[in-house]
Design a binder for these strands. Sequence first.
RNA 1: GUGAGCGUAGCUCAGUUGGUUAGAGUCCCGGAUUGUGAUUCCGGUUGUCGUGGGUUCGAGUCCCAUCGCUCACCCCA
Length: 426
Amino acid sequence: MTKPIQAIRGMNDLLPDAAQRWRRIEQQVIGVLGAYGYREIRLPIVEQTELYRRSIGEVTDIVEKEMYSFADRNGDNLTLRPEGTAGCVRAGIENGLLYNQIQRLWYCGPMFRHERPQKGRYRQFHQVGVEAFGMSGPEIDAELVLMTARLWRALGLTDIALEINTLGTPHSRAGYRTRLVDYFESHQAAFDDDSRRRLTTNPLRILDSKNPALSGLIAAAPSLLDHIDDESRAHFERLKTLLDGAGLRYRVNPRLVRGLDYYTRTVFEWVSSQLGAQATVCAGGRYDGLVEQLGGKPTPAAGFAIGLERLVEICGLSQATSPTDAPVQVYVTMLGERAEREGLALAEALRDRGLAVLCNSDGGALKNQLKRADRSGATFAVLLGEDECQNGLASVKNLRADEAQQQLSQAALGAYLRRRLGLDPA
RNA sequence: GUGAGCGUAGCUCAGUUGGUUAGAGUCCCGGAUUGUGAUUCCGGUUGUCGUGGGUUCGAGUCCCAUCGCUCACCCCA
């Protein structure tokens, strides 16, 4: 045997049982999005590298070391999308969807980041992304959050909690950042290497550190909420009022910081305790500056992304049993050359009548063919041998109930099976 | 990129202080029924013990390297 080729690390196959569970969950998600008037948009998986450099931020981990980038044959620098928002905004600008318009959009598909795989984190992973353009008020922020809450209810999820925060405007955040760096620099001795590095790259993330040695220092740090501008504070207060009014429970987490540079004002995150270290199932927020930053007219925007691997993981834990795909209804066994020839035609005729039919293939003793019929999940087996063929008949055996085997004309077979399967009235 | 744990049949796993020809269940195939499944009985194939070195009379077992998987750090959906 030659050496088999393996899948790329962190890129997983979804086998039929898993694919079925995924599709079921995706359909639930899409159903809820549709109920809020969101429409699907399909976007390329590859974009110019520059798009991500300009949107996600030059100094983020994603851009610095996680992107799958390569030179196209003509020398263009392309990248497998590490997230969906940038591409969606690019498409919106390019196709005139955002100019003086309100848009509610969603998309679904694979994203790529070169990280070390672990539970809930893969190099090819899948997101459902939702973006709302042209609305600057907190009502749309609330709508996005309420929509996700409805989705969790639809999926029967209970172990999932909402955290919200506001980042203010880029200007007020920059001021806070300076204050924070000043504060931390005076206490640098206690820092671990990671936090020391973050001091220059992303100081706000130090607030999120898991190092218990820093918890006292972090608790005493200046708070972002004390430094944001009045308009952002009013926006945030109004959002909380709207969520309260809708009866939604949440926790204000002043240390909640998104990793991508384009977020402004509202950010939120849904977390579950069932996912290990990668607890975030869904996260998003407002990004009022991004459209302009990518060459469009200034346009307020907000959105979120759901990590499908993580969502499927916690759905699997809450749904004890997962129903299977609709099984085939009829299995056709065939003995002999003539039966094999006529059986294929007979199966086609049954499918013409709307039946799901599995045809035996590669011969085998009748005993084996019936074994396969049983395993296929079919309700009825149709037996075709020399005897049946010579008389234009077919034998029908019920595989799920103890009843006498029938023999009837091939012409009457379709109607009989439809009636017995409950597709036509008796 | 860093660290830890784990790699034995298609799948789930056993394998003693290093000891003969590496085991069980499941799955698959054949038979008990010249054409009748899911139960039962009988028989059969499961394999470069992840890979490559080393120690030893002898390595699935000990050591080193390497690859892969898993979890965590980091990062994030």
